[in-house]
Amino acid sequence: MRNRRLLFVAFILSCLITLFSFAPIELKKINFIVPKGWPQPAYSFTKFPLTEEGFQLGRKLFYDPVLSRDGSVSCASCHNQSTGFTHVDHAHSHGIEGRTGTRNTPALMNLAWNKLYMWDGAVNNIEVQALAPITNPIEMDETLEHVVKKLNSSRIYRHMFDDVFGDSVVTGQHLLLAITQFVVQLNSYNSKYDKHIRKEAGGKFTNEEEHGLQLFRQHCTSCHTEPLFTNNQFENNGLPIDNTIHDIGRMKVTQNPADSLKFKVPTLRNIQYSAPYMHDGRFTRLAQVVNHYTGGIVRSGNLSEKLAKPLVLTEDEKKDLIAFLMTLTDREFLLNLRYSFPKETK
């Protein structure tokens, strides 16, 4: 009798076990942190909530040259963590077979607060941004179809995609959503400036930095708006046009002459490390940038009216302004091991 009862219990147990083994595994949810005083991000996390597994899959993809045609270039080849995910020392990014592009690699951070991506805003959603480098002949020169095929022939990737999406067949959509999970979490909000604003330890400004902040708020915040240091708009900041590349900026997308020579206002966070500067990387030092704003502005018809009034700064004021820009460096971000090359193999 006892046996029968045991059998019954065993039967129920085995039923439960089979049931659970079919149920999808529970993924570890990640709460997206909106720092105090910041606006809500523009990107909506409801479509595909952030998970640890999704983040790790995206991270692996970001560092994997499998995304390029000949397996030589990964996202990280151009977007290097230690410089705020930009291309060190390269005015124009080098891609596959050393081919060079026409634009400077922007730093990647706080992307969930952006609405449009690229210097001209040609990409309207972060989820589809990766399509551009993957298929660009001078960057990774691949097709999405073929990348998906390569990933489907990898057992490890099929496993990881299955865990994250409940589907072991890799699709274009899932590939893009996974990369998105990684890039939208590259968030920088622990610079000296942030600690200063939050009145935390390590946030005490020197007199120079404090004065620099005042100058910045007087002359720069209309475009480089705190706390993201961008107003997410396209502006002409008076750079003389480059006659070799002839990049018309936003107009390429809208075909509206009023948008000629307008470029996305870039964030200035971690600016100390993300040289060279501007869409074509024409400046290598912050002093050159400041000198541009004080003496190099070309007053064309499209110049932003925010720069209509000429800016005059003394040498000391320039130094203070730059001292302030240095407080935007966030070492916790630049050295965060969570964002670095995934060493552990899964």
Binding site: N124, N125, V128, N136, L144, V148, T171, L176
Partner: peptide
């Protein structure tokens, strides 16, 4: 649909009906 990011099924960007250089 054009601004909704990465979609699946018949709208998957692998189907050759998506522009990468200028999304849509």
């Amino acid at each position: 649909t054009n601004v909704s990011g990465a979609l699946g099924g018949d709208l998957d960007p692998t189907l050759g009906m998506y522009w990468a250089w200028n999304t849509g």
